[in-house]
Amino acid sequence: MSAAHDEKQPRRVHLKVLGATLGAGAFAYAMAPLRAWTKNISKEEFLQRHYKELTREELAKVIQRLEAETKRDYGRDVTIKDPKPREGVEFGYALNLSVCIGCRKCAEACHVENNHDRRTNNSYIRVLEMEQGSFDMERGNVQYDGPVPKPGKFYMPVQCHQCDNAPCTKVCPVQATWKEPDGIVVVDYNWCIGCRYCEAACPYHARRFNWQKPEIPAEQVNPDQGYLSNRIRPQGVVEKCTFCLHRTREGKLPACLEACPTGARVFGNLLDPNSEIRWVLEHKRVFILKEELGTRPRFFYYFDV
């Protein structure tokens, strides 16, 4: 039928062909930015499997590729390691609110250590200035300025609480984020699809999304990197505090702790009865934030006295 129909209506056919060609051309034009973008995604990256499914050799290859890409994009030679959790170690962190002065040195150290985007001055730590005598975060303030500590205020830094019952890992549709045996919640930046469901789920504002490709001058890149922690994150994925696992799994302390001038921060192995963190948990007035949500954090606050 159509043949007969079309013979009689050649104009109509021509118009349709013209329309289809124009449409296809316009579509190709509209999608051009996407093609340029996909050029930067190698076949290996596209096909890369989840971290937990990679063999040692595969991971080594991935890391090689990532190091080369960092060199290409940021002009810096870096080493990406993949330190594993250690047997008999579960990390915990405690913060003394009586001595914290709100200087934000920890937040700055985090910014540098973790290769955060320089434009946005990103950090995994946010410090709240709170009213003395009130625990109402509503009355807290993150944008405070000027000399600290201010009279009548106390300061509460907040970062990932490495929850044992973590809402963020539950909601992730692709298991791109999970809890490691030593208690640290990590993200596979090469598996995350960037849906930001975890960001909505986290009650502590601990997650960050890479709204654009991080920008860091070559000389400022921290070259000691971990696959699951501070390597420079790709655009479009979520990231978070990892208790500096590239340091702490090798026996060092988190960068934020080393930067703190007041000694407000105590970090250590919860399974070691002689650790300082255990002493704090057993002897101080310790509390956790938003306990009612049942997230079971590994990040504790305490007061002297």
């Binding site: 539950k170 909601v171 692709v174 995350c192 699809i193 960037g194 849906c195 930001r196």
Partner: peptide
């Protein structure tokens, strides 16, 4: 369009990706 990484859409396909079912409501 809300995904940061639409190139990784296959990660959410049951069978080929890693489908966090039944825990994640999104799955």
């Amino acid at each position: 369009v809300d995904m940061g990484r639409p190139d990784r859409l296959w990660h959410i396909m049951p069978g080929i990706g890693r489908f966090n079912w039944p825990i994640s409501m999104l799955t």
